[in-house]
């Protein structure tokens, strides 16, 4: 069969063309640059949608094409291959990518933890009648997270460790956020690490928060960021600066206008009005908390997410 040949040829052709369109941040005559940005269509990226609506990107002569993707793991390759100019990803995924030699470079902040117990973008929730009262009780229990070996389990372990529990004995189970509530109800799992809008839904159903891992991991932890490739960061500094400026303005605006941020959710998610009203919004500061990134890097190494001698280089990753 010539299929594998064909596939290889196609793959080769595509990588070549992808590499070719790597510089595809096409700038038209009037100086407007068209850029593709990979986002995950959840509440975390409300600022960029809001900024687009408010014209913050137009001010920087940027034409924004938002490309929704299923998860950060799909966005990183997109950015690295040049399909996307910028992308949204959590810090742990980027640390992992960097440790495997992928040329990623953070541009600006994405979302941060509120730093307030029980009032954060994510929490560990148990049933009301559960015996689990404190984070350390999670030891030896089944905890659902959306992605194994990533931010969720890293932060939950940090929380348990801080409370003096045995973090190694937690049994993590991977499942999509929407499925967690049913599994918790049925008792298939003991606790869930969950984000909005599911967090407020679960609480409304009478469950309770037992830990706020992001808060326990680092003070005002930077959870996710916008990034590009090291190459773009070096060769197209102007573009990166303009994106940074527009993005920062968007973050500030969203942080100070929560009602507008809630309203924009309905335009790109299926989160309906009343859900959006009740949910806890993440914090969108402009500043990246470098210590919290370093803390996550250290945890990634000590938890065995990153193996081998190659230590993550936080300074090289961050701008």
């Amino acid at each position: 069969m010539r299929r594998p040949l064909l596939a290889l040829a196609a793959a080769a052709a595509l990588t070549v063309s992808a590499a070719a369109c790597g510089e595809s941040a096409t700038t038209s005559k009037n100086g407007v640059t068209s850029i593709d940005v990979g986002v995950i269509p959840i509440s975390d990226v409300a600022p960029i949608y809001l900024g687009q609506k408010k014209g913050f990107f137009d001010e920087q002569k940027l034409k924004l094409n938002l490309k929704p993707a299923q998860g950060g793991a799909a966005i990183v390759p997109g950015v690295v291959s040049g399909d996307l100019e910028f992308g949204f990803s959590n810090v742990v995924s980027l640390l992992l990518a960097q440790s495997k030699g992928l040329p990623v470079k953070v541009v600006t902040n994405g979302i941060s933890s509120s730093g307030e117990e029980e009032k954060d973008f994510a929490s560990v929730i148990v049933k009301d009648d559960s015996k689990i009262q404190k984070p350390k009780d999670l030891a030896g229990k089944k905890v659902a997270i959306n992605t194994l070996n990533n931010a969720g389990d890293t932060q939950v372990r940090a929380s348990v460790r801080k409370d003096g529990g045995d973090a190694k004995s937690i049994k993590f189970v991977e499942m999509p956020f929407p499925d967690m509530s049913a599994a918790l109800d049925k008792g298939d799992i003991d606790a869930v690490w969950i984000v909005e809008p599911f967090q407020s839904q679960l609480l409304a159903d009478g469950n309770r928060i037992v830990a706020t891992p992001a808060v326990d991991t680092a003070e005002k932890l930077t959870h996710a960021v916008y990034f590009t490739t090291t190459k773009t960061a070096q060769t197209d500094q102007d573009l990166v600066k303009r994106f940074q400026a527009a993005m920062n303005k968007s973050l500030e605006y969203a942080d100070s206008h929560p009602d507008e941020a809630r309203a924009i959710l309905a335009t790109y998610t299926k989160i309906k009005g009343d859900q959006a009203k009740d949910m806890v919004l993440p914090k969108w500061p402009v500043e990246i908390n470098r210590e919290s990134v370093q803390a996550q890097a250290d945890l990634a190494v000590s938890d065995g997410l990153i193996k081998g001698d190659k230590k993550p280089d936080v300074n090289a990753l961050l701008p």
């Binding site: 995924s93 495997k100 992605t147 194994l148 993590f172 189970v173 991977e174 499942m175 499925d179």
Partner: peptide, 21 residues
């Protein structure tokens, strides 16, 4: 890909996510 912590499919996806190409 759902609620697993072992398995061939699970492992492959894990490799993809952690960029172990």
């Amino acid at each position: 890909m759902f609620a697993a912590s072992t398995g061939l499919g699970f492992t492959i996806i894990q490799f993809q996510r952690s960029f172990a190409i």
